[in-house]
Nucleic acid binder design. Structure first.
Lengths: 226, 226
DNA sequence: GTGTGAAAATGATTTAAATCATGAATTAAT
DNA sequence: ATTAATTCATGATTTAAATCATTTTCACAC
């Protein structure tokens, strides 16, 4: 259990007890909201298992995918200085999360410099990640952006350990990919078709197999023009 | 002096002394680098005065503008968990910064929960800011994006207090605006011409006067189609 | 199995923005 | 002041991707 490991590493025994007493476990099915933008911040979530998309409402009232999350990640930490969550979190698959009330977490932060450092590092990583995506979105070529998204899927969700080699353990919808990449789902589909033609990936229904991760990485870093 | 105020608010007297003894002041001219991507992280910077652009190298080897900074902001905090700065900072105007070595700053963090909270809030804000920009970039209309950039210039650099009302105190180049907006400088220039035609702004050379901030805000939030 | 709805896939058309090309204006340098 | 260099400005052309319109495939229910 991710959160338990983290707290036992960072806290003295008495505070580990505080965590254990105050934590709650929640289960979500695919499509369910873990929390929604605008809700009052009650606490912080640790993803024990599952895949999640973090959404934020844009000016046009549609939700944009801000990041993907999976096992071992923190949710709701953007609420620190806000009264209300600035983003929503929605389960993409069956998900288990551990919840801890904000005041309890803040108390633990006060007595655990290790936890402070962990959190600062986590947020620093997230900041770099967000800025990296920003750069990627500025790059105008959708092919590059979609290659980056595929690599992101590998990074966050990983490969299925079953028969087929390099079959993504979870594939988000083409529409979600378009959302992440700032493009349309038709463009995503066409681009995936090109990648398939070039033997970079293969498609089995909506499922995606990464045939040539090296080549995909070259496309994603702009080292391959076609 | 921004950093002095911050530390005296957050620290007991003895630690304020540690800050005062260890801090250094640096001066930069427009175009000079404060630190560069890839350099070993030595410490953290507080902007006392001046305008700065924070850059990050993209795949195509060109620098992309990640954020703008001005008086009262922190630089170099992305280096917390990294050995080397993941971004560069370049002065846009004459700039004064206070530098404090990382180990000194971390020591102060350990004894000052106030400073921890301040930093967490600052980073939380930055994260939200980055995600907001991400959303904005996903929105495809360059006109909206350029309106957002103009408002950003108002927010970060403010208006000149001289004769002309609502004259931006500092205008970045069209090329820099294009960089921030993920577009070309021609598109920036054309869009500014449209804004001028619609009496939203006026142009005096490269300088920009915001004539109708309300209307600009409507364009930026997509509430105005033309 | 058959039916229904959703998601994926493709083709045709339009459109907006990038690119290319050139010229004007502003700034800096001698 | 004159030249050079940089930045700003516009017009013409091309191109890539959005939009629109259908068709196909897949998944789930009955």
């Amino acid at each position: 259990m991710f959160s338990l490991k983290l707290f036992s590493k960072c806290c003295a025994n008495e505070w580990l007890q505080v965590f254990k007493v105050n934590k709650e476990t929640f289960y979500f099915e695919a499509g369910q909201r873990i929390f929604s933008e605008g809700e009052v911040v009650k606490g912080i979530y640790f993803v024990e298992k599952g895949n999640i998309k973090v959404l934020s409402k844009a000016h046009d009232k549609t939700d944009k995918i801000i990041r993907l999350a999976s096992t071992g990640m923190i949710l709701g930490h953007r609420g620190f200085n806000a009264k209300r969550y600035p983003v929503s979190a929605e389960a993409l698959t069956q998900t288990i999360v551990t919840f801890i009330p904000l005041n309890v977490f803040l108390s633990i932060l006060k007595v655990s410099p290790e936890m402070v450092i962990y959190l600062l590092n986590f947020m620093s990583d997230e900041l770099q990640e967000a800025e990296l995506r920003m750069k990627n979105l500025i790059i105008l070529d959708p092919k590059v952006r979609i290659a980056i998204i595929l690599l992101k899927l590998v990074e966050v969700f990983g490969y299925q350990k079953k028969e087929v080699k390099n079959l993504l353990s979870f594939t988000i919808s083409r529409t979600d990919m378009a959302n992440m990449g700032g493009t349309t789902y038709e463009t995503v589909i066409r681009t995936l078709a090109i990648f398939k033609r070039d033997k970079v990936i293969s498609l089995a229904g909506k499922e995606i197999v990464i045939l040539n991760e090296k080549k995909l990485r070259q496309i994603a870093t702009g080292k391959m023009k076609d």
